[in-house]
Amino acid sequence: MRPFSFRRPGSPEEAVAMVEPMGVAGQGGAFHAGGTTVIDLMKLHVLHPPSLTDLGDVLERGIEETGDGTLRVGAGTTMAEAAEHPAFLRAPVLSEALWKAASAQLRNVATLGGNLLQRTRCPYFRDNVSACNKREPGSGCAAKDGINRLLAVLGTSEECIANYPGDWANALILFDAVLETRSGEGGREIAFDDLHVLPGEDPARETILGDDELITAIRLTVPDWAGRSVYTKVRDRDSYAFALTSAAVALDLDGETVREARLAIGGAATVPWRAREVEDWLQGQTLTEDVAVEAGRRAFEGAQGWGENDFKIPLGRDTVARGLMEAKAMTPETNSGDSQ
């Protein structure tokens, strides 16, 4: 690891004033919260910011309920704290997406603000050797013809197929979330849907955050009916593994008829991926197994496999179908902590 300075600001204002950029355009400021991604990548020499600005004394921690279904989540809240919070347990997709992620040790330190900005696990990004447009713009993409079993089939470009590896963002995106941020230019609000940008021709740029911009809080609105929600995560082992594919589902049903559906896909896309067209299509449908299968098919229209990860397309379809059928089968009063 290269020498770097570690800065400990006392307020968000101080933090954004002293933070230095990560070093590659569009990769934001070198903030340190839980440290579970940034330290890892610094040890691999993939990131080498001159300093880290620590957010330990800066970020709000905890979840406020404002009464109308709106939650305000301090960006410093840990994954473990949030997973157990009653407001999240009432919308199981929010809780499940947290406790099905990482390991207990990681969840104890990783923060929700940082979690949203989790970097890809693409091995060609992390090896610090291969061609990678995200790490070294213009160098190419070694993953397209390489070991890409874990990488994306949705939202890819010829320049990058790195997947967004996180889980919770796929649940959050269901709930019209707004990010409160702060930078040298003051505060602003960002619709969470707009935070991540597709790789396109500039995969180094992952979000719209400025180089000194800090996520301070996350607001989301959870409808009453979100008790019928599920995070279906398919992975190579039953704990501590990234999603091969996942589906975040929330359903408002009238009998078997869909009043409203919300659906997002994880593991298989380059960014947190809400499938709004499928949601619209589901509205008014009687949710039979055939409808669930068709929803899965629609969710992966336009998906492109890259060889090893071709299976993620049929698997992703089935993950969506399974998630819908599991959400349908729920009895929202008794749904929390279901583990299959």
Binding site: P123, L150, R237, S239, A241, F242
Partner: peptide, 20 residues
């Protein structure tokens, strides 16, 4: 193409965990 090990860590080199 290269002979490089692309999962040279114990996150992506998957072994059983208690839950399995």
């Amino acid at each position: 193409r290269t002979g490089a090990v692309m999962n040279d860590n114990i996150s992506e080199y998957i072994v059983p965990v208690n839950a399995d």
